[in-house]
Nucleic acid binder design. Structure first.
Length: 578
DNA sequence: TGTGCCTGCCC
DNA sequence: ATTCTGC
DNA sequence: GCAGAATGGGCAGGCACA
């Protein structure tokens, strides 16, 4: 019987990982650690690495993030909350804050199991005063830690270990530890893709060896990690990756659902991240029950909200009102949905993961005739770019997001974002995307690798009638590291002690700016916002905002008065509204 | 009982 | 979701 | 090109608190 591994030992590995950039070195460090821990400790380490205490499909959450963790830090060492906040603002990492304010002490009394058990208790706390309980438990745990231990406990809870190690690297390290080479990671990855439980894979691998995981098969009731698509800027580019015949399929703007139907007719629905969402869609469950009639299957598709009057596809925002636990029946009537099935991974006792897509599609067409609430996703088969363009235009016209192009010969590559599936949306192509020239009015401090600069900027449109600026979105994507590093200097001269009086927004920025700088921004589409204020008066139900915003470039040639106007955005909204 | 903050999870 | 970056 | 780590809008649910 091995002695329980100390949390301190894991922390020592973390320290080393944090200091190394080389992937190979990282794998060696992990491998070294894995080779002297028990199967159960390997399981727990896997969960801790992801900032979780269970696989996703068990739905057990810590329910404690930045704000409550800050309160825990304050409580653990009697530091004023204000000071914790200030330090966080400066360093951008609560783990580092914890390490700084924790008093020097040896540590080493905690084992991995004990730390895990405490976090599990936090996760299980619920009901009145449970927030206080969670904070208390974490604070007590932290107070038993050395500064280094406290740093990683904090980061684990926040799910931001920032070590350059996530699931794949973990599996490489495990492979190396157990087989002496990283090459067997493929076996582990395959097992992970089918079991969707990194901890379970780690446990079994350490216990029975990597080879024992060779033939892991899908199980009804355990979600399979979903295959994802790469993206291209243009349909021409598809030819580079998929030269032959491809399936061109509507890309629906809804929620991905993997449905498991057992022989006994038990049905479970899983979201893309393996949350059980069966209770949200009794209508889909009923439709699947009727369609399958005792056959077992795992199928995949997209649920989309449908306009009850005319049957047209509705936008994502409307579907989101169905992500609920109360009043489900009412919303089944109010927001009807349709399940657009596009794949089948298991049927009648057989895994179809290795069956070519063309055959999986045949199974679908043979066994899933359209019915109330169920339809097969619309697609064509072609190798001709012109035809793809036409179908893409049709998909957009019908209310789709774009198209997904799929290699007809490809197997289902669970969990990977490979080139066998390629997505193409309108906003990926510069000429088709809407762009906006917006005024920078606020900044939000960055965290982690963006510590010391801004993580995002609050930008606004101009209204010449009121002479005011109306917030439209925050942008944090699209900046290079170099650009990010320049931001504080570039913006410093416009710094204000408080929000500029002519800026309208309900967002709280860390730093406010005088409207001066203009930047070009693109995004996918307009949404109705509870916090942004563009065209808020005209719309009544909220302001307009931008989904998936990203920075393109500065427009130093433009003054803030020459920025995109509120009126222009509102017109865009009314013109494309469906 | 109503409201607002916080969190987790969809995209 | 999108984007950037080091390996 | 992979894997990881930054970042967005916005919804419902749970809890704290007035």
């Amino acid at each position: 019987m091995k002695p329980a591994t100390k949390f301190k030992e894991l922390v020592a590995v973390f320290e080393q990982l944090e200091a190394t950039a080389s992937n190979l070195k990282i794998m060696d460090l992990l491998a070294d650690f894995f080779s002297h821990i028990t199967p159960e400790e390997a399981r727990l380490t896997a969960y801790l690495l992801r900032g979780k205490v269970a696989p996703d499909y068990e739905g057990l959450e810590l329910g404690l993030a930045k704000k409550l963790v800050m309160r825990s830090l304050a409580q653990a060492w009697g530091t004023p909350l204000k000071e914790v906040e200030n330090r966080f603002q400066k360093t951008g990492d609560l783990g580092d804050v914890a390490a700084r304010i924790a008093p020097q002490r040896e540590g080493g009394e905690l084992s991995i199991q004990e730390v895990f058990a405490e976090l599990q208790t936090i996760a299980r706390a619920s009901g009145a005063r449970s927030q206080e309980v969670k904070i208390q438990i974490l604070a007590a745990l932290l107070s038993r830690c050395s500064p280094q231990e406290a740093k990683y406990v904090t980061r684990i809870v926040l799910g931001t270990l920032r070590l350059g190690v996530a699931e794949m690297t973990f599996l490489y390290g495990l492979s190396k530890a157990l087989t002496g080479t990283k090459e067997k990671k493929a076996i582990l990855e395959n097992a992970f893709n089918v079991l969707s439980d990194l901890g379970e894979v780690a446990y079994q691998a350490v216990k029975k060896g990597v080879e024992a995981l060779q033939e892991v098969q899908p199980v009804i009731g355990i979600p399979i990690r979903m295959m994802l698509a790469q993206r291209v800027k243009d349909l021409e580019e598809v030819k580079k990756h998929l030269p032959g015949q491809v399936i061109v399929e509507y890309k629906y703007d809804g929620e991905r659902i993997q449905a498991h139907i057992s022989k006994q007719g038990e049905i479970t629905l899983y979201s893309r991240r393996h949350e059980k969402i069966t209770h949200q869609f009794p209508d889909i469950v009923a439709a699947l029950g009727r369609a399958l009639q005792g056959k077992e299957a795992i199928i995949e598709g997209e649920v989309v909200a449908i306009d009850p009057q005319i049957g047209k596809l509705q936008n994502f925002q409307i579907l989101m009102t169905r992500r609920r636990k109360h009043g489900v029946e009412e919303y089944v009537r109010k927001v009807p949905v349709k399940y657009f099935i596009f794949d089948i991974l298991y049927f009648e006792g057989k895994s179809l993961l290795k069956t070519p897509l063309s055959q999986r599609k045949e199974v679908l067409t043979r066994h899933f005739p359209d019915s109330d609430g169920l339809t097969l996703a619309k697609y064509i088969m072609t190798g001709d770019v012109e035809e793809m363009e036409g179908f893409f235009a049709e998909a957009i016209e019908q209310g789709g997001e774009g198209v997904v192009l799929k290699d007809v010969t490809s197997i289902y590559e669970a969990g990977t974002r490979g080139w066998k599936w390629i997505k193409f949306k309108k906003d990926y192509r510069r000429e088709l995307a809407d762009t906006f020239d917006l005024v920078v009015v606020g900044g939000i401090y960055g965290t982690g690798r963006r510590a010391g600069t801004y993580g995002s900027l609050l930008v606004a449109a101009f209204n010449p009638e009121t002479n005011k600026y109306y917030s439209f979105t925050k942008v944090g994507a699209g900046f290079t590291d170099q650009e990010l590093a320049r931001l504080p200097d570039r913006l410093a001269k416009y710094n204000l002690p408080e929000k500029y009086r002519l800026v309208e927004t309900q967002i709280e920025a860390d730093v406010w700016f005088e409207p001066a700088l203009v930047m070009e921004i693109t995004g996918a589409e307009l949404t109705i916002s509870p916090v942004h204020t563009v065209a808020k008066e005209e719309l009544k139900k909220g302001g307009l905002a931008l989904r998936f915003p990203r920075f393109l470039r500065w427009r130093d040639d433009k003054s803030p008065e020459q920025a995109t106007t509120v009126q222009e955005i509102y017109e865009l909204y009314t013109s494309i509204r469906r």
